[in-house]
């Protein structure tokens, strides 16, 4: 983007116009997607002021009729109506997917930062941190969820204070699993970023009388966490996608609910394609949001020479 001052060629201008049209389309699709989700959620929480709880926001029959009237779209009218019928279930599942991802990501981050710092600056704790990350990164997430759910039967041991927050306590088991697993991956990204902070920064911190811990907290981490944002975004995206594995331990999130409908109706094509689009929308939203975050916390000169 450095050469932006050069006059554009016609082809470039055409490409730009096309790109901005694409962007508008993308924003419109995003607004529709999130608008639908939020309205569905609010409708459910408020006990159905717009449409009865469990009903789609627009009538499937109306959609089918409308599409059926257009010759080109008539062929897909029935499928479209079916998808509309699905929307309440999908919205409900997406809520859990979003919550599980969000809570696990934040909790994992809280664990990951000390893990990364221990790995770089600790002695004994560095080995402990290494052992933890290697173990968690060396085994499949699904196997870890199985250990927590089937092996340790943790769903029966959810503390009273947490129990009942979700319709099913097993949601907490999934959150625990994603937190522990995500912490290991996040720690790796953050460790890389911590290591890339110039050593002179700590020396300078120590020289004005900050302790080592204070130097790490006030000087190293503010820089390292900024460096970590792009790779951390990857982890965010991974977690959205892998939250689908919660379905395997009976958490009624997006994938689980869609899979159940598919098993009942055998309409695999429509359901799984819609499911894929749903996740794609969540993932694209996350990466766009993180791009914004990255830009908004950017500091002149910081990380500018890093190509990531």
């Amino acid at each position: 983007m450095a050469g932006a001052t050069r006059p554009q060629t016609v082809a470039e201008r055409a490409a730009d116009a096309e790109a901005s049209a694409g962007r508008i389309l993308l924003v419109a699709a995003g607004a529709l997607f999130w608008g639908w989700l939020v309205v569905s959620w609010v409708n459910r929480w408020l006990g159905g002021p717009l449409v009865p709880v469990g009903d789609p926001l627009v009538s499937p029959a109306a959609v089918e009729a409308a599409l059926g009237a257009v010759p080109v779209l008539a062929a897909v009218a029935a499928d479209a109506a079916f998808v509309i019928e699905l929307t309440p279930v999908l919205a409900q599942g997406t809520w859990l997917t979003v919550v599980i991802t969000g809570v696990s990501l934040v909790c994992g981050f809280v664990i990951a930062v000390p893990l990364a710092v221990a790995r770089v600056y600790g002695r004994f704790s560095a080995w402990l941190s290494l052992g933890y990350t290697e173990l968690l990164r060396g085994t499949p997430l699904l196997a870890q969820l199985f250990v927590l759910y089937y092996g340790l039967n943790l769903a029966s041991y959810v503390p009273g204070a947490l129990s009942g927050v979700f319709a099913r306590d097993v949601v907490w088991v999934a959150i625990l699993g994603f937190t522990l697993n995500g912490a290991a991956y996040q720690a790796e990204y953050i460790r890389g970023a911590v290591e890339s902070v110039d050593e002179g920064q700590i020396t300078a911190g120590r020289a004005i009388g900050l302790s080592k811990v204070e130097s790490i907290y006030h000087v190293v981490l503010p820089q390292a966490l900024r460096y970590a944002i792009p790779s951390w975004t990857n982890e965010f995206v991974y977690l959205i996608k892998y939250s689908s594995l919660a379905g395997f331990i009976t958490v009624p999130e997006l994938y689980y609910r869609a899979d159940q409908v598919a098993t009942d109706t055998f309409r695999y094509t429509a359901i799984f394609l819609v499911l894929g689009v749903m996740y794609l929308a969540l993932v694209l939203t996350a990466s766009k949001v993180m791009e914004r975050v990255d830009a908004s916390v950017a500091i002149p000169g910081l990380g500018a020479d890093r190509d990531r």
Partner: peptide
């Protein structure tokens, strides 16, 4: 310091 070591984020 020779290399300044200014806190790059501040």
């Amino acid at each position: 310091f020779q290399s300044f070591n200014l806190f790059a984020h501040l």
